[in-house]
């Protein structure tokens, strides 16, 4: 019987706790990747696991991302539950053929005879002054692939609960960790082995005037914007999408049906971003309720600038607030005209 203890932890520590918990409860769970063993991962997500669970369950691999993804698929199809680390999302592209052509399809193409219960973790997003290729947000590449689940936590508690569920899930899960908030704050979590649902988004704040939908590191910017909006008398409902694919349409639709306004906020480029799919879905299901066009606050459709200029790319609370204020005032004006 496992104990339940609560800890004040950062997100990276919460991830480590979840991995530890899963490894202690599920013997099939193995961890692999570059530098995950002795070094405990470059961000320390896997620290102490090798000492605790041994070389057979915590494997330092050669520096070969295609291989890392491919062997994970092989292990998963044969009864293990690999939790695989790709050191940075910028290096995930070499895994795409394996993930798209095999991980996502293994269950379907064998009619359920084999499956692929693997989690591929990668730190993602900007904001830590990292070198080139270390700051992009390309979650939409995976969200487009049927058969994959894409999950992005935005707090220590959700990182813990979502990662546990991802490991327990019998489908392949791409688990993207916003590294900007790995250590930005601590919060108290209960290490009780309980997962959070992978098919439900989280309403972090209720409000009647506008729905703000976000995920990852942008959630804290969005919450700040919501606080500022409240000072102006605008009550924003803030939703952490958390599971990017397949995403929980009904919570989003219900919220917009209530508020009549919506803004989607993400760090990734706008063109074909996940925000586009959310906007399309809300238009399809909640169009008659809309009092204003749905807006997006996102990264630009440009290459992510190197770190000296990354703050000019990353959307912040001010920009979110300005966009919401503009959509509300425009809407008021157009309503006056209509009258």
């Amino acid at each position: 019987m496992q104990t339940s203890k609560s800890y004040d932890v950062s997100m990276i520590e919460a991830i480590n706790l979840a991995l530890d918990r899963a490894m202690s409860e599920i013997p099939e769970v193995v961890v692999l990747g570059e530098d995950v063993g002795v070094n405990g991962g470059v961000f320390r997500a896997t620290v102490n696991l090798r000492d605790k669970y041994g070389l057979k369950r915590v494997m330092d691999t050669p520096l070969a991302e295609t291989l890392i993804a491919g062997v994970s698929i092989g292990m998963a199809a044969q009864g293990l539950r690999p939790v695989t680390e790709i050191q940075f999302m910028g290096f995930v592209y070499a895994t795409m053929e394996q993930l798209v052509s095999h991980a996502a399809r293994m269950r379907n193409r064998t009619r359920g005879r084999l499956s692929c219960p693997m989690v591929l973790r990668a730190p993602y997003g900007g904001g830590i002054h990292a070198p080139e290729h270390h700051s992009e947000s390309t979650e939409a590449l995976f969200a487009h692939i049927p058969g994959l689940r894409v999950v992005i936590p935005s707090s220590p508690a959700r990182a813990y609960g979502l990662l546990l569920s991802a490991i327990q899930c019998n489908d392949p899960v791409i688990f993207l960790e916003p590294k900007r908030i790995y250590r930005s704050s601590k919060s108290r979590i209960l290490d009780d082995g309980m997962g959070l649902p992978l098919d439900t988004c989280f309403v972090l704040r209720e409000g009647r005037d506008v729905t703000l939908i976000s995920w990852g590191a942008m959630v804290s910017e969005t919450m700040t914007a919501a606080d500022q909006l409240a000072e102006q008398g605008i009550e924003a409902e803030v939703i952490d999408l958390a599971t990017i694919a397949p995403f929980d349409k009904s919570t989003l639709i219900q919220s917009v049906q209530k508020t009549g306004r919506c803004c989607v906020i993400h760090e990734a480029a706008r063109n074909c971003g996940v925000g586009a799919e959310i906007v399309a879905t809300i238009s399809e299901y909640a169009f008659p309720y809309l009092k204003a066009p749905i807006s997006r606050v996102t990264g630009y459709d440009t290459i992510m600038p190197y770190f000296k200029n990354e703050s000019s790319y990353l959307p912040g609370a001010d920009k979110i607030m300005a966009m919401v204020m503009a959509s509300i005032s425009e809407c008021k004006e157009s309503n006056h005209e209509a009258v």
């Binding site: 491919g70 698929i73 092989g74 199809a77 044969q78 095999h102 064998t110 084999l114």
Partner: peptide, 25 residues
């Protein structure tokens, strides 16, 4: 337990290595 036919060239090599790791573990 056998893998299905693999069309994307050479990708199955990694799966077999994964299966071999599984047997070893």
């Amino acid at each position: 337990q056998d893998f299905p036919i693999c069309v994307p060239i050479a990708t199955q090599l990694c799966h077999a290595a994964g299966a071999a790791i599984g047997l070893k573990v």
